[in-house]
Structures are given as structure tokens and as C-alpha cells.
């Protein structure tokens, strides 16, 4: 066996990483209102009970509107920034890129309170729209990270060939570059969507009376009786995000293969 001790350690570490994720479906199908061992037997009633939860559906609708808008907006901004940083040299590039990437390390609560202060200052009422503003800020750095690797692998001569054949910069971008970075764009949209769907703090501060799915889940944790339903909901969400991520990973790898780059692995 290659790696010996390190392999055993890494597998142990993966068990630690997966412990909560593995427990989730166990409790979602457990026929007991208390989230603890020993298990009480198999049931699907938490999943059926989910359909009649009054607060859940508006929260889901809000979350989907926010996540889809965030995915589109942050990917558009990400394409512009990634293209600018990989293809062009311009004054002030380092500080500007630094500012745009800052939310990657900035605690979300800082982003949330500073935006709250501004929005209330100018008198913009809190709503889904203000949550989208915050989410785009937070997911754009991730979009840029993914798209930069897609743009980096591009062969400049393909673009030059298009110019020689009479294409304008805009049409060359649309006909040559865009198809090549499409997998990166899809991957960026899926990642931004997933991040936005799961984001809590910004939605909690900037949503006002509009509740998103994580805010709804957080409020339900206060009532022990509704926790099993949340476990069922969580199981569906986890299954869905694993599916989305697998698709995103597939496109990311295909994108790297397409532009002739080498796979260095990972989203970040």
C-alpha cells in the first residue's frame, strides 16, 4: 500500500469530515422526534411532513430567486474580471483585484453589517434584492477563481487568428473565446448558486422580513419538534448539492481539457 501511515491518517480525517454528512440521512429516516441514538426504526414521515410546513415554501422560493440571480450576476462580473486579469495589463491591477477578491477572507458578518449600515443610511428597504447585492459581493471572488483558470489556459493565437480572419474583438470573443470557456462559466454558475443557497449571515442581516431557506432552518432549530423535518430537508439539500457539484466538477475538468491545460485539482 502506498503512503502507509499517511493513507490511514487521511482516511481517518475523511471520516471526521464526513461524520455530520453521514449522520444526516440516518436521522432523517429515524422514527423518533429526538435526534439521538438509539434509533427508533425506519420512517419517511418527516419527508411527507415537509410538504405541509407553512414557512418552508416561501423561504425556498426566495432562496431560489436569490441564488439564480446571484449565480448569473457574479458569473458576469467574474467573466469580466477574469478576462481583464488574464489578458490585459492595466494600471492599478493589483489593488483593484485585491479589493474584488477581499470578501474571500473577510468575515461575512463584516460584509453584512457594513452593507446594512449603507442600505439603511440611503433608505433602501431590506428585501430579496438587498440579499442579492450582498451575495454577489461574496460569490464573485469564487467565480473569478474558477474563471481565471479557464481563461488562463486559452491560446492567444486562436484569438489572433480570428482577428486575421476579419472578426472584431466582440465577435471573436463570442465565437472563439466564449465557447472555450463555457465549461468554466457553467462551473462558476453552479458554485455561485450553491454558495448563495447556503449563505446564512448576509441573508439574516439584509433580508428584512424576507426569509431565505437557511434563515428558515436556523429559526426552526429553536423548536425541537421541527428538527426531524429539518433533517429530512437537509438530506435533500445535501443530495442536491452533491449532484450540482459533481456536474460542476465535470465541466471544470472538461474545460481544462478543452483549453489544453493541466488539471491541478480543486475549486479554490
Amino acid at each position: 500500500m502506498k503512503g502507509g501511515v499517511f493513507r490511514i491518517y487521511t482516511i481517518g480525517y475523511l471520516l471526521f469530515l464526513y461524520a455530520p454528512v453521514v449522520l444526516l440521512p440516518i436521522f432523517a429516516f429515524n422514527d423518533g422526534t429526538v435526534i439521538a441514538f438509539p434509533l427508533q426504526g425506519f420512517t419517511t414521515r418527516w419527508f411527507t411532513q415537509m410538504w405541509s410546513e407553512p414557512g418552508l415554501w416561501p423561504a425556498l422560493k426566495n432562496s431560489l430567486i436569490i441564488a439564480v440571480s446571484t449565480a448569473i450576476l457574479s458569473t458576469v462580473l467574474g467573466v469580466l474580471a477574469a478576462r481583464a486579469s488574464t489578458r490585459y495589463r492595466f494600471p492599478g491591477k493589483a489593488p483593484v483585484m485585491g479589493l474584488i477578491m477581499l470578501p474571500l477572507v473577510l468575515p461575512e458578518i463584516i460584509v453584512a453589517v457594513s452593507l446594512l449600515v449603507v442600505l439603511l443610511g440611503i433608505g433602501i428597504p431590506l428585501s430579496i434584492f438587498t440579499v442579492i447585492l450582498g451575495h454577489v459581493l461574496m460569490t464573485t471572488p469564487f467565480a473569478i477563481a474558477i474563471l481565471t483558470s479557464a481563461f488562463q489556459g486559452l491560446d492567444r493565437s486562436l484569438e489572433e487568428a480570428a482577428y486575421d480572419l476579419g472578426e472584431t474583438p466582440v465577435s471573436a470573443f463570442r465565437l472563439v473565446i466564449l465557447p472555450l470557456v463555457m465549461p468554466g462559466i457553467i462551473s462558476s454558475m453552479l458554485i455561485s448558486f450553491t454558495l448563495s443557497l447556503d449563505e446564512f449571515i448576509i441573508a439574516f442581516f439584509l433580508g428584512g422580513t424576507q426569509v431565505t431557506l437557511p434563515v428558515y432552518i436556523f429559526s426552526q432549530f429553536r423548536f425541537p419538534a421541527s428538527v426531524p423535518v429539518i433533517m429530512a430537508l437537509g438530506t435533500i439539500l445535501v443530495a442536491l448539492s452533491v449532484l450540482l457539484l459533481t456536474v460542476a466538477e465535470y465541466y471544470r475538468r472538461r474545460g481544462i481539457a478543452k483549453s489544453g491545460g493541466k488539471d491541478t485539482g480543486g475549486f479554490l
Binding site: L77, L80, A81, A84, Y88, F90, P91, T140, P169
Partner: peptide, 16 residues
């Protein structure tokens, strides 16, 4: 080139 770069970076930069 600088002009092209600045034009592209403007929307995300202004947003930030």
C-alpha cells in the same frame, strides 16, 4: 491594452 483592461474591470471594480 490598458484601456481594454480598464473597460473590462470597470463593472466588477465599481461594484466592489
Amino acid at each position: 491594452e490598458a484601456k481594454g483592461g480598464l473597460l473590462l474591470i470597470a463593472p466588477p471594480a465599481i461594484y466592489a
